[in-house]
Write a protein that binds this DNA or RNA. Structure first.
Lengths: 260, 260
DNA sequence: CGCCTATTTGATCTGATTCAAACAATGTGG
DNA sequence: CCACATTGTTTGAATCAGATCAAATAGGCG
């Protein structure tokens, strides 16, 4: 099912369309980029701190995450990445990785060589801008996470995160009937929030008690988005979605661009 | 004296040179950018959440910061900005501000119109890349802060921050004799770390007890950088300084702002 | 001096961590 | 189909880092 992506590059076009406006011609150029497909097993490290990659990974299916360790060996997850994202796009201009990138689930990616991306950026300033913009949204998401980590109580932090996950996936047509994937473990969510597993688990219990959402077996069910939004103070502006973000919420089957 | 900045755009060139390699010609183009100077009083908001600016602010002297509020009114400082930074460069591609930008001290900035920046980016891909790169370093810094907020104990968090401040200023020649500016209040530092003022103050006491640094009256004195680095696990890679970052540490003279 | 803001300290409380262990779910090989 | 291993979730209990409340200093400055 969900034969979303005959062409893996469609995922990228879909994502860039969600945040920018590309002409048909520009879309064709992207679709024509040379791409090397690859399967990843859950847990595999795509790139590690200190490396100097010569290519980026475009997520086609599955989830990846960025993470980093403290000198004392404590882990912090920095972001989660869904199909259409290029989690290590920054490596195009920042030669050495300052964090790690790993597959959370089994995943499919395609590698895009820096060379060809750079060429495209030179000849197609609009595409360069769309990619730049993508990295800026990344940064905006970091800002929001910092607010959550620093100043939101655990329950609100979690609620905010769930809103984000839902809206981001909605923007690429990956929600249906108030549900979407959230294929991470509680330990991973704890590492993303900067809290202990035990406390995360207890916060989750509290979250369930509100009746606003449920999350189990890697699926998130949002029963009351407005309520969740109110609880967390979630404002989707920071995701800088072209259309507005929450508007598409009730799109019945939600498809962004007709992959056919 | 310290006539560091006859031309305010020098600050930008200096910063971009610290992270990129620009030709003499490219530097000249930057120096020729139309710039509107402005004085800011400490506390003044340069840009606020929800606004759609048509210009960016280049810091010439003084410090600015980005910050954001929780729905419940709790404040989180997201970054500090020193001369040479363009703290709201993201507004060039992200139309609406998702956070606030304010002057921490009295400061001088120059406004750069989006129009002229965009034009320059189109005709000078190398400059566009340097600016893009700057925003990516911004994001890298967010990642490091997230690690600090989520996983570092208070003392290490503070030590790491002090290392960062020192190295960043060193890169623009704003350290002298192991000292540099740190013109923020304890309350602001607490808001940056996501901790309470009281706890910050106590952590500072502990920090002083180590004898590695001192910080008072807006000046930071680093007595033992290696020790501070060891304590915090600071690795300057994430600042992606072209030369290496800590190497310039013994640059003989350097003063940042002689606002007189 | 008097006002205002910033720093410091004390006392108390709690959100969150750690340690430990039980359960549940899934998968493997025999 | 079962025994066993593995990974993920849940719960209990003890403890602590850090928050909150309250108030006393200490600077700056007109």
């Amino acid at each position: 099912m969900t034969p979303l992506l005959q062409d893996p590059m469609q995922a990228l076009v879909r994502r860039l369309n969600a945040i920018s406006n590309l002409t048909h011609e520009e879309q064709q150029i992207i679709l024509a980029l040379p791409a090397m497909p690859r399967h990843l097993r859950a847990g595999f490290d795509v790139a590690s701190e200190g490396e100097k990659p010569d290519r980026c990974a475009l997520v086609v299916s599955g989830w990846l995450c960025r993470y980093k360790f403290t000198g004392a060996g404590r882990k912090q997850i920095l972001s989660f990445h869904i199909p259409g994202d290029i989690p290590d796009l920054q490596s195009l201009l920042l030669r050495t990785m300052d964090h790690n990138l790993a597959a959370i689930t089994d995943a499919r990616i395609v590698y895009l060589q820096h060379d060809s991306l750079r060429e495209t950026c030179f000849s197609q300033p609009k595409i360069a801008q769309a990619l730049w913009r993508d990295t800026l949204i990344d940064a905006a998401t970091y800002r929001e996470w910092m607010l959550g980590m620093g100043r939101r109580p655990a329950l609100q932090h979690m609620a905010h995160f769930l809103c984000e996950i839902f809206v981001r996936q909605n923007a690429i047509g990956a929600t249906f009937d108030g549900r979407c994937d959230l294929p991470i473990s509680q330990a991973e969510m704890a590492d993303a929030f900067g809290m202990s597993l035990v406390h995360l688990n207890r916060t989750l219990r509290e979250m369930r008690k509100t009746g606003l959402v449920d999350w189990s077996h890697g699926r998130l069910a949002v029963y009351d988005f407005k309520g969740l939004q109110k609880l967390s103070g979630f404002d989707p502006t920071y995701l800088h979605l072209a259309a507005g973000g929450q508007k598409a919420k009730m799109a019945p089957l939600a498809r962004t661009n007709g992959a056919k």
